[in-house]
């Protein structure tokens, strides 16, 4: 009798132990689901995996697969595969949001879908209910303080004759990075509708430009190798170079700075829309939102409280600093992109 009871108990215990992970997994809402996210590679993706994907997987069982790419190449993929999009989440900055809306493959995301949307600061949802803004960055002049005798203080300074053969600018095809041109225009009486002052200045700066950077990584290498002493970089990359020990100074031009917001979108025909919404909710949570500031000192878009030690290195570390960020008419900026790219190429060639 005792032996029989023992055998029954032992069998029950063994069955429970074997079935436990399975039962536990079944409790998790997204167990067995894989969310495909179009990433931007490197530390950026690693950060999102660490602060958004990992906690979400822990809680819900959702697996996240991030594929490194560029927003332009991803846009082409999304347009070419509208019915069966390659990603459940497509990332775009303010400029590419115009293209994504034009291509009409992303869906609206309401507060009822992602409750943390209510925490987004005013002015960051630039496209009504399309796209969830999660990070803000800017492109500002930077320089190596050991290599330049006279500091740079404005976008216009990049055309100074003493900078001959010393600067790098982003390639013309990077729409957001090229906002330095808008800075040059507005500092010299121009505007987004009148970019001539910027092009005249670029003509003057032609001999200063060693190369146009095809990526921010390539531009960092130019600074590290001593190819250039100044340029226009994102605030995050400026911080990255300082963290590596380079004496890089990021400039805040007094007339204002130009930045853009990064958005996450859900395609209309996404395979896992529910999981994508959960991902966005986690992205906007305190835990998710503080990831990119921690690793890259990128700005936040919600009311999350920034730790002091991180905030001191960030460009947008207060509402006052955010007020320095100038508004950009992205539709106009993107409508002029072909002519702008051609003009830059022609100026630099001529």
């Amino acid at each position: 009798m005792i032996r029989r009871t023992f055998l029954k108990l032992a069998t029950a215990t063994a069955m429970s132990a074997l079935a436990a992970p399975y039962v536990h997994a079944q409790d998790k809402k997204f167990a067995g689901v894989t969310l495909r996210v179009g990433g931007w590679g490197g530390l950026y993706d690693e950060t999102i995996k660490k602060y958004v994907a990992a906690p979400l997987e822990e809680r819900t069982g959702l697996k996240v697969e991030m594929t490194a790419g560029t927003q332009s190449a991803d846009l082409v993929k999304m347009v070419a595969n509208r019915e069966n999009p390659p990603y459940d989440i497509y990332q775009a900055d303010s400029a590419y949001m115009v293209e994504a809306l034009k291509a009409d493959f992303i869906r609206e995301i309401k507060e009822s879908d992602v409750p943390n949307i209510k925490r987004i600061l005013p002015g960051f949802r630039e496209y009504d209910e399309y796209g969830v803004p999660y990070s803000v960055f800017t492109y500002i002049p930077v320089f190596n303080s050991e290599q330049l005798e006279k500091p740079i203080t404005t976008y216009t300074d990049l055309a100074r004759p003493d900078l001959e053969g010393k600067i790098t600018l982003p390639a013309a095809t990077f729409d957001t990075n090229c906002l330095y041109l808008l800075g040059m225009a507005e500092e010299n009486g121009g505007s987004i509708s009148n970019m001539e002052p910027a092009f005249k200045l670029l003509e003057k700066a032609k001999d200063n430009i060693v190369a146009l950077g095809q990526s921010t990584v390539a531009m960092i290498q130019m600074f590290e190798n001593g190819e250039v002493a100044a340029g226009v970089m994102s605030d995050a990359r400026g911080y990255e170079m300082r963290a590596k020990g380079l004496p890089i100074v990021s400039v805040m031009p007094p007339q204002g700075i130009y930045g853009a917001t990064s958005y996450m979108n859900i395609p209309k025909n996404a395979k896992n829309p529910e999981a994508a919404l959960a991902f966005l909710e986690q992205m906007l949570s305190d835990e998710g939102m503080l990831g990119l500031p921690r690793s890259m000192r990128l700005g936040v878009t919600t009311d999350v409280k920034l730790p002091e030690d991180i905030a001191k290195d960030m460009t947008f570390n207060s509402l006052e600093r955010l007020a320095l960020k100038k508004n950009v008419d992205w539709e106009k900026w993107m409508a002029d992109r072909s002519s702008r790219i051609e003009r830059i190429n022609k100026i630099l060639r001529g």
Partner: peptide, 25 residues
């Protein structure tokens, strides 16, 4: 041409890539 030329040495191949992949034209 794009990486070694740094856009200062244009060749038609890189211009085509730019036109298709960046300008979507």
């Amino acid at each position: 041409p794009r990486l070694i030329g740094g856009n200062r040495v244009p060749m038609l191949g890189s211009l085509i890539y730019e036109r298709i992949m960046s300008e979507f034209n």
